[in-house]
Structures are given as structure tokens and as C-alpha cells.
């Protein structure tokens, strides 16, 4: 099954008794960078909680912040709710709008975790519900959020998405046929 980029519109991509893959509506997405000594000052200025451990997610209202590395956070917010981006931050940091860089897919269903094993060399169980990680899916870098036991979100660079999503769609059918 091959999915072309223009097929990728928000809504259902694939569904079976085993799992479902949906493309989500666009969100505002920012990359935030700051060194540890300035983390608190940046967090206070942005009025966001910046988690300390790699993989942890903090929520402030509807804004989610995922720690991707020692000096890196991914901020996701509903479109138009990005007040934090215009606040004054005196401490050294970098805030870059990457809203259009990735597309996001929600992967759910009783075998959602197994579906990821088609392309993800990391053990999905090493990501606890409520956490996220940057990792690999079928040779593409992705950010994988585990929102629940069987509920994942995958952020993937726009041009890599058709390839990865083709495999997810194929896997939906394959897992259901087992």
C-alpha cells in the first residue's frame, strides 16, 4: 500500500480490528533550547513547565512540553494559542517555530504498540504512558508520544510521512489478519 503526500489530509488513514491510524489537525509546534542553568528562568518567562528528564512531558493548560534532550524541548500547542512565543525572555535561549515541519499521526487500538514494532527498533514499552521520545521508525526520525497504554502520537517530518504511514497502514491490516 503506497500513500502519496496529497493523500495525507487530517482524518482516518487506516483502521482495522487491531489498530487505527489517524492524521491529526495541524498544531503550533516550537523547538525550545536552553542550557540547564537557565532552564528555570526560561520556564518562568515563558510561563511553561520545562521537565528535566529526557522523555518527560509537562502540561500547562493545553500546551505540552516534551524534553527531547538535555537542552531541548518540544512545545506543542493548539493553533493560535501561542502567547508564550511572544513573551520576553532575558535568559539565553532559542525558540524556533517548526509548526509546518512535521505531520502528526495518532496510533490507537489494542495492538498499537505491536504496530510500532514494524519499524521501531526501540522497545515501545521503554516509553511509559505520559512520556515521549525522539526515536526511529522505518529509517525516519520521529517523535513518539505515548499518551496511553494503546495510544501513541507520531510526529514525523512532512516528506518522510508517506513512507512511514504506508507501513503503518500495511501493518494495521497485517496485525488484524493474525
Amino acid at each position: 500500500m503506497t500513500i502519496h503526500p496529497h493523500d495525507l489530509t487530517p482524518g482516518k488513514i487506516a483502521e482495522s480490528a487491531a489498530c487505527k491510524v489517524h492524521m491529526l489537525d495541524p498544531v503550533a509546534r516550537f523547538s525550545l533550547r536552553a542550557h540547564e542553568p537557565e532552564r528555570k528562568a526560561v520556564a518562568d518567562a515563558l510561563e511553561l513547565d520545562l521537565p528535566w528528564y529526557v522523555g518527560d512531558v509537562a502540561k500547562t493548560g493545553e500546551t505540552e512540553v516534551l524534553n527531547l534532550g538535555p537542552d531541548e524541548w518540544l512545545i506543542v500547542a493548539p493553533e493560535g494559542q501561542t502567547d508564550f512565543a511572544s513573551r520576553t525572555v532575558d535568559a539565553p535561549h532559542a525558540l524556533t517555530d517548526i509548526s509546518d515541519r512535521e505531520l502528526t499521526f495518532r496510533i490507537t487500538g489494542p495492538r498499537a504498540s505491536d504496530l510500532l514494532t514494524l519499524g521501531c527498533p526501540r522497545d515501545p514499552d521503554s516509553i511509559k504512558p505520559g512520556q515521549g521520545r525522539r526515536t526511529l521508525f522505518d529509517s525516519a526520525t520521529v517523535v513518539l508520544w505515548r499518551d496511553g497504554e494503546n495510544d501513541f502520537r507520531m510526529d514525523i517530518w512532512r516528506s518522510f510521512a508517506p513512507h512511514a504511514v504506508s507501513l503503518l497502514a500495511l501493518g494495521c491490516a497485517e496485525l488484524a489478519a493474525e
Binding site: 542550557h35 517555530d97 517548526i98 515541519r101 517530518w157
Partner: peptide
Amino acid sequence: KVWLTSTTENW
């Protein structure tokens, strides 16, 4: 104090 972000696919 500088950081790099790939924005290739953002634009």
C-alpha cells in the same frame, strides 16, 4: 549560547 534547528521541511 547558540542552538541549531533544522527548518528544511518547515518551509
